[in-house]
Amino acid sequence: MKKLLLASLFILGFFTVNAQNVTLNVNLKPIQTLVVNNAQKIVNLTYTTADDYKNGVSSTNTDHLNIYSTGGFQVKVKSANATLQNGAKTIDANTIQIKATAGSNAVNGAQYSQNVQLSNNETTLVTSTKGGVDKKISIEYKGAGADTYIDNYVPGQNPTVYTTELTYTIVSQ
């Protein structure tokens, strides 16, 4: 009996279970995308009356920017130049103000900058400590009043158009 028991233990010793461990990593990399609404890629501030020159004009672009971010982010804007150009004539970019507000699918807890002067240096418009999917930001562009542009019409041009390119960027925070 002793031999049978010893033989059984000896045989069982060969059938021990070997366990193996596996390390599973979930690697999350930051993703930020910003898309300008295709229907709003050209923004016009049109002065047609004396009141427009006196009070300024604005263009509100609802859901102008669409955001996807895996975490906190900042949205920034800058002008290609410090001035808007029409041939040899210019108007200062900082006479245009930009106001960011929550769009139809707002970023929870975001902070929106009001009345930012356009510049050829990046200026922060929106800051959020949380990410989001398909979040919308509305942008209002406002041109100067107080007859700021009264001497910028060029005879023979109807209308006289001053142009610059704006660049919106999103960065993780």
Rank of each mutant, 00 (worst) to 15 (best):
N55E: 11
N108M: 05
Q85F: 11
N18I: 15
A7R: 05
L65K: 04
G13N: 12
G109C: 07
N66A: 09
V126F: 11
Q74P: 00
Q114D: 09
G156S: 08
P159A: 10
D134K: 06
I31D: 07
S113E: 10
A80G: 15
T62V: 13
S172F: 07
Y162V: 06
I11Q: 09
I139C: 00
V126N: 01
L6Q: 01
V154H: 02
T127Q: 11
K41L: 06
S128A: 11
V26K: 13
L28Q: 14
N44K: 14
A144G: 09
V43R: 08
A102S: 14
V116S: 08
A39P: 00
T123G: 03
N21A: 15
K135W: 00
Q157G: 02
F10C: 15
T60I: 05
N120R: 05
Y53Q: 03
K2I: 10
A82K: 15
S128L: 06
Q117G: 10
K3L: 10
L65F: 01
K76Y: 02
Q85M: 09
V43D: 07
L45T: 01
K3A: 12
V35E: 12
T49L: 02
Y153C: 14
D63H: 06
V107G: 04
S172G: 05
S58T: 01
T83R: 13
N27F: 05
E165Q: 12
Q20I: 12
V26I: 08
Y168E: 05
